[in-house]
Nucleic acid binder design. Structure first.
Length: 676
RNA sequence: GGCGAGAUAGCUCAGAUGGUUAGAGCGCAUGAUUCAUAAUCAUGAGGUCGCGGGUUCAAUUCCCGCUCUCGCUACCA
C-alpha cells in the first residue's frame, strides 16, 4: 500500500443548466463529503474541489429559450447550486466555476501546451454553416426531414420521432434553427485528441494496475478499451465557451468535455498558491467522485489529457456510483421529476441531516436504487429518532434526573461494562475499514450500531431500577452511556455534521479528533451537561403525503403540457383518397431475430394474406397479437426491412411517452372493410 | 444484436480462492420493560441465493446457455 502525504478530492462538476437534486447528492456529493470530513478529522492534508460546469450547447439553447444570455443562465444556476451545497454542509474548500477568469487562462494554457507538443491531430470536416447569422451550426441547431421516417422536424443529431441518431448531413431539406435559412456545407478545421495512441498505456494503467476499482468502473473502462479508442474532437464551432487560443481560430471554442475537467485544476489554483503540490507530487492521492455517466471522461479521457500534458498525477481511484431513482421513475431535470434541494430546504427546515442520512443509507453504490418518501419517513422515525435520538435523549435525561446534569464518577467495571467498551473500539474500526473502501452504507450502519449498543447497554443495566438500591452503580452506568454519546459525536460527524455539532454543544465537548474515538475519557467526571433538546423529530404521515402529492401534480402538469406537434400542411381530398386503409386480422406474429423492436406479422386483409413488418415488439408479445383486428395502410409501397418484404403499414397511435396503441375498429367488422 | 453492471428474506442490501443450520437493517409476530420523542430490549417466523444445463465428493459461489432490469452502443421503425 502506497503512502500518501495529502489528498486531493474532486466531486463531479454539476452542469449549470438547472438546480441540483437528491440524485446528485446521493451519487456524488454526500459520499465525497463524508470521505473528506473523515480525512479532515483524521488530521490529513486534504483539498476538496468542485465548481459549476458552465459551457456547452445545452446552456446556449436554454438561454435562447428564455431570451437571456448564456451568462445569465449560468449565473442563476451557479448561485443556486452553490447555495444548496452550502446549506447541506457539503464542505468544499472551494466551489468555483468554469466561466472564471482563472479557468479561462488555465484551460487555454493547457490546450496550448498540448498543441505545442504536437499532441493533437488537425482535421478538416464539412459542417453546416448559416450564412445569414454567419455561424457554424451545432447539430442540435439544424432541423430537417428525417430520412427514415419522414418526420420534417428532426434534429441534426437525432430524430425525436423515430429515435434514430442522425448526423446533420443525413437530413433532407436542412434548415437553420437560428434564421430558418438553408445552411451550406463549409469546411472547418478542428483539433482531435488521439486517444487511440494511448490505448496501450491505459490498458496497463487501468486493467493491470487498478484492478481494485469498483466493478462498474473497471468493467466500463474495459468495455471502452476493448472496443478500441478513437480520436476525439476537442474543439467546436460555437460562440459560448473558451476560445481556442490559436491564430485564425476565430469562432472556435474548446469542447466542453475538454474544458470541464481542467476546472478541477483551475479551482485548486484559485484556492491556493500551493496548488502544484496537490496536482503534481507523487505522494498526493487524487480521487474523483462521480456518477456512472462520467466514467469514461474521468478514467480515460482526462487521464490521457493529464498524461500528454505531463507533470500531473493520475487519479488513484474513481469511485463512481450508479443512479438514484425517485418513486420508481428515473429522475429527470427536463421532466421536473426530482426532489430539488432548494425546495427540500424550504419544506424541511433544519432537516439537512435527515436527507444526508437517508441518501447515504440508500446510496446507489452497486446498482441503481430507489428513493421513496415512505422510506424517507421510515428511516427518520425508526432509525434517527428511535435509535440515535432516543439513546442520546435517555442518557442525557437520566443524567439530569439523577445527577443534576453533571457527569458522574466511574466506579468498578464488570465484565459487561468492559465488553461494551471494547465494542466501541470494534465498531470504530469497522467503520474506518468501510470508509477506506468507499462502502458508505456499511460505514453508516457501523455508526448507528454504536447507538444501538448504547440502547442495549441501558436496557440490560436498567439504571432506573437500581437507582433506589445501588446509586453508586448507576454512576458508572451513566458515565459509560455518556462516553458513548461523546463517541457518537465524533464518528457520526462525517455523516451528520449538523447533528453532531448540536450533540457536542449539549455535552460541552470541544473540537475532537478522529483518534479520540474509542476513548472513554472524553467527558471528565463533574463536567456540566446542557439541558438537551431533541436531535430529531418524527415525520408524520401528512408531511410525506404532501410530498407525494407534489410529485403527483408534476405528473399531472406533464400530462397537460404534452407538446402536440403542429398540424402538417393541408392536402387535397384526392391525396387522402389515394390511401387505401383496410381492416385486417393478425393471423401470426413473431419477433424478427436480432432486432429489438421489429415484429413480423401475417395479416388477413380480406384481399389476401400478407406479411407486414412493424416496430412494435417493444410493446407487445406475439401471443397478445394473435387474432387482433387492426387497421392497415394496404397500398403503401412494399419495402424490404431486415430482409423481409413488408406489404403495408399498421396504424398505431403513439402516446407522449412513446407507448403504442393499436387503432382498432370499435366493433368487429369483416376483414377488408375500407376505412375512410 | 454487441459490451458493461445487476438479479439473494415483504423492502433496501451484504456475502463466500466452492464445504457443516446463507447474513444485516427496516417491516412483521410474540414476550419483556417503562429512563426515553408509544421510543427501547429479547426471541421468532420468512429465502430450492432469476431459470436450465455442466464441472466437482460438494455450487447460491466456477463454466455454458436463457430470461428480466439499468447504462452505453448498433440496427430498425
Amino acid at each position: 500500500m502506497k503512502k500518501y502525504k495529502r489528498y486531493l478530492i474532486t466531486a463531479a462538476l454539476p452542469y449549470a443548466n438547472g438546480p441540483v437534486h437528491i440524485g446528485h447528492l446521493a451519487g456524488v456529493y454526500v459520499p465525497a463529503d463524508i470521505f473528506v470530513r473523515y480525512l479532515r478529522l483524521k488530521g490529513e492534508d486534504v483539498l476538496f474541489i468542485c465548481g459549476s460546469d458552465e459551457h456547452g450547447v445545452p446552456i446556449t439553447i436554454k438561454a435562447r429559450q428564455e431570451k437571456v444570455s448564456p451568462q445569465d443562465i449560468v449565473d442563476k444556476y451557479h448561485n443556486l447550486i452553490k447555495e444548496s451545497f452550502r446549506e447541506f454542509g457539503i464542505s468544499f474548500d472551494i466551489y468555483s466555476r468554469t466561466t472564471s477568469k482563472i479557468h479561462y487562462q488555465t484551460a487555454s494554457d493547457f490546450f496550448k501546451t498540448l498543441y505545442e507538443k504536437g499532441e493533437f491531430i488537425e482535421k478538416t470536416t464539412s459542417q453546416y454553416f448559416d450564412e445569414e447569422v454567419n455561424q457554424f451550426l451545432a447539430d442540435r441547431y439544424i432541423v430537417g426531414t428525417c430520412p427514415h421516417c419522414g418526420n420534417d422536424s428532426a434534429y441534426g443529431d437525432q430524430c425525436e420521432k423515430c429515435g434514430t441518431s442522425l448526423s446533420a448531413t443525413d437530413l433532407i431539406n436542412p434548415r437553420s434553427m437560428l434564421s430558418g435559412s438553408k445552411p451550406v456545407l463549409k469546411n472547418t478545421l478542428h483539433w482531435f485528441l488521439p486517444l487511440d495512441k494511448h490505448e496501450k498505456e491505459l490498458r496497463k494503467w487501468i486493467l493491470e494496475e487498478h484492478k481494485n476499482w469498483k466493478p462498474n468502473v473497471y468493467g466500463q473502462c474495459k468495455s471502452w478499451l476493448d472496443a478500441g479508442l478513437q480520436p476525439r474532437a476537442v474543439s467546436r464551432d460555437l460562440d459560448w465557451g473558451i476560445p481556442v487560443p490559436l491564430e485564425g481560430a476565430k469562432g472556435k471554442v474548446l469542447y466542453v468535455w475538454f474544458d470541464a475537467p481542467i476546472g478541477y485544476i483551475s479551482a485548486t489554483k484559485e484556492f491556493t498558491p500551493e496548488w502544484e503540490k496537490y496536482w503534481k507530487q507523487n505522494d498526493t492521492r487524487l480521487i474523483h467522485f462521480i456518477g456512472k455517466d462520467n466514467i469514461v471522461f474521468h478514467c480515460i479521457i482526462f487521464p490521457v489529457m493529464l498524461k500528454t500534458h505531463g507533470g500531473y498525477i493520475l487519479p488513484d481511484n474513481v469511485p463512481a456510483n450508479e443512479f438514484l431513482n425517485l418513486e420508481g421513475d428515473k429522475i429527470s431535470t427536463s421532466r421536473n421529476w426530482a426532489v430539488w434541494l432548494h425546495e427540500y430546504l424550504d419544506d424541511f427546515k433544519g432537516k439537512q441531516d435527515v436527507l444526508r442520512y437517508v441518501l447515504c443509507a440508500t446510496m446507489p453504490e452497486t446498482k441503481d436504487n430507489d428513493f421513496t418518501w415512505k422510506d424517507f419517513q421510515a428511516r427518520n422515525n425508526n432509525e434517527l429518532v428511535a435509535i440515535l435520538g432516543n439513546f442520546v435523549n435517555r442518557s442525557l435525561v437520566l443524567t439530569h434526573k439523577y445527577f443534576n446534569g453533571k457527569v458522574p464518577e466511574i466506579g468498578n467495571l464488570n465484565d459487561f461494562d468492559n465488553q461494551t467498551l471494547n465494542e466501541i473500539v470494534n465498531l470504530k474500526q469497522n467503520l474506518e475499514e468501510n470508509l477506506e473502501n468507499f462502502r458508505f452504507r456499511d460505514a453508516l450502519k457501523a455508526g448507528m450500531d454504536l447507538a444501538r449498543l448504547g440502547n442495549k447497554y441501558l436496557a440490560d443495566t436498567e439504571p432506573w431500577k437500581i437507582i433506589k438500591t445501588d446509586p453508586e452503580r448507576v454512576k458508572t452506568i451513566l458515565h459509560i452511556s455518556l462516553q458513548i454519546t461523546a463517541n457518537l459525536a465524533i464518528i457520526l460527524e462525517p455523516f451528520l455534521p449538523f447533528t453532531t455539532t448540536k450533540l457536542s454543544e449539549y455535552l460541552n465537548l470541544g473540537k475532537l479528533k478522529w483518534r479520540d474515538a474509542g476513548n472513554i475519557q472524553l467527558l471528565k467526571p463533574g463536567a456540566e451537561i446542557k439541558e438537551p433538546g431533541l436531535l430529531f423529530e418524527k415525520i408524520e404521515d401528512d408531511v410525506v403525503e404532501k410530498q407525494l402529492q407534489k410529485l403527483q401534480s408534476v405528473k399531472n402538469i406533464a400530462v397537460q403540457n404534452i407538446q402536440v406537434k403542429p398540424q402538417k400542411n393541408a392536402i387535397s381530398y384526392d391525396d387522402f383518397a389515394k390511401m387505401d386503409i383496410r381492416t385486417g386480422t393478425i393471423l401470426e406474429a413473431s419477433k424478427v431475430p436480432k432486432t429489438d423492436k421489429l415484429m413480423q406479422l401475417k395479416i388477413k386483409t380480406g384481399i389476401d394474406e400478407r406479411t407486414v413488418v412493424s416496430g412494435i415488439a417493444g410493446y407487445f408479445k406475439p401471443e397478445d397479437l394473435m387474432g387482433k383486428q387492426v387497421c392497415l395502410l394496404a397500398n403503401l409501397e412494399p419495402r424490404v426491412i431486415k430482409g423481409i418484404k413488408s406489404h403495408g403499414m399498421i396504424l398505431l397511435a403513439e402516446d407522449s411517452d412513446g407507448r403504442l396503441v393499436f387503432v382498432t375498429p370499435e366493433q368487429k367488422v369483416s376483414d377488408g372493410s375500407e376505412v375512410k
